[in-house]
């Protein structure tokens, strides 16, 4: 084996080793790397009150209630569990029922999550607005596009 291929092998081997080291670190810290918890990941007995965390999921259908002009109540769900959220402030434009959202805040007691920030999450689907109308007219509108 010529010297240059020994060097090439050495470089590639080093890269693989560093990459696996970094990936191992990231894999074992994935709870901290993840930006939010889903409602079913939250274990009710382990809730620490007034500790800031983020939860993410979909805004549950028919759960959105306006308490006053700037105060809202809704549920965040991942279809396995759901959490009641109250929020004082301005909601992002994309926020609506059935839409993904990430909520920053803290549990005030075991069932109520007090939000300080609400971010809307959008999915990877892009579609012209006109097609949505067509699909709705023909009844082919898929609920999961929401």
């Amino acid at each position: 084996m010529s010297l240059r291929f020994q060097r090439l092998l050495l470089i590639l081997l080093t890269l693989v080793i560093i990459l696996s080291a970094v990936l191992l670190i990231l894999y074992n810290t994935r709870e901290n790397v993840s930006y939010f918890y889903t409602p079913s990941e939250i274990n009710k007995p382990d809730i620490v009150k007034n500790e800031t965390i983020r939860i993410g999921g979909f805004v549950e259908n028919n759960s959105f209630n306006k308490i006053s002009s700037s105060s809202f109540k809704f549920k965040i769900t991942d279809e396995k569990a759901s959490i009641l959220v109250i929020f004082n402030g301005i909601l992002p434009d994309l926020f609506r029922e059935g839409q993904g959202a990430v909520i920053e805040g803290a549990f005030v007691d075991n069932d109520i999550f007090n939000a300080t920030n609400v971010f809307a999450k959008h999915d990877e689907n892009y579609m012209p607005a006109s097609i949505k109308e067509d699909l709705k007219d023909t009844g082919y509108w898929n609920k999961k596009y929401k």
């Binding site: 930006y35 889903t38 990877e124």
Partner: peptide, 11 residues
């Protein structure tokens, strides 16, 4: 794909 992110996955 690996973590929960606010950014959406690849289109």
């Amino acid at each position: 794909d690996w973590w929960n992110t606010l950014h959406q996955p690849a289109t």
